[in-house]
Amino acid sequence: MNILVNLAGLMLMALVVWWFWLSRRKTAAPSATHEATIIVEDGVYTPASIRANAGESLTLHFERRDPSPCAEQVIFQGLDTSEFLETGKTTTLTLNNLPAGTYRFTCQMQMYQGTLIVD
């Protein structure tokens, strides 16, 4: 009986790791934009990939629908930018003069994940 419980626990842990860190959600290649709305819900950012032009400003509207504490902050690695998101409200974040590169944006626990591609 202990073996079955341990196996079930290991399978559940593997599923959690796959869901949050290893799965790649299929999305169409985004086109460059100056403004985008991102829905924060059910453990994901939608859309999870945004493309912008280097040297230009990008305005992002984060609509937080998920009451999970993990969803309360978005952090842009490599841009030294973060913002707290209120539940049930839209928070606007403007990134000015973006340098070319690929930047991850995540929640503080890195369970919600997205990518900002600047060309």
Rank of each mutant, 00 (worst) to 15 (best):
T37H: 10
T59E: 11
T46W: 04
H61V: 03
L60P: 01
H61G: 00
P67I: 10
A54R: 07
E63M: 12
D42N: 15
P67V: 04
L60H: 07
A52V: 04
I39Y: 01
H61R: 15
F62Q: 11
S49L: 13
E41H: 11
T46I: 08
E63V: 03
S49M: 10
T59Q: 02
G55K: 03
V44A: 11
A32I: 10
G55V: 05
I38N: 01
I50R: 06
I50Q: 11
S49E: 12
H61T: 02
A52K: 05
R65Q: 15
L60Q: 07
F62Y: 15
C70W: 09
S49D: 13
T59C: 05
V44H: 14
T37L: 03
A32P: 12
A36G: 01
E41P: 01
T46C: 02
A36I: 11
E56G: 03
R65K: 15
N53G: 04
I39L: 15
S49A: 14
T46P: 02
G43V: 09
T46S: 09
T33V: 13
P67C: 01
E63A: 13
E41Q: 13
A36W: 12
C70E: 14
V40N: 04
T33Y: 02
R51G: 04
E63T: 09
E35K: 14
A36L: 03
H34L: 08
A54F: 04
R51E: 12
F62V: 04
R65T: 03
S57C: 06
V40G: 02
V44Q: 15
A32K: 05
L58K: 00
I39A: 08
A48Y: 01
F62E: 03
T37R: 14
Y45Q: 00
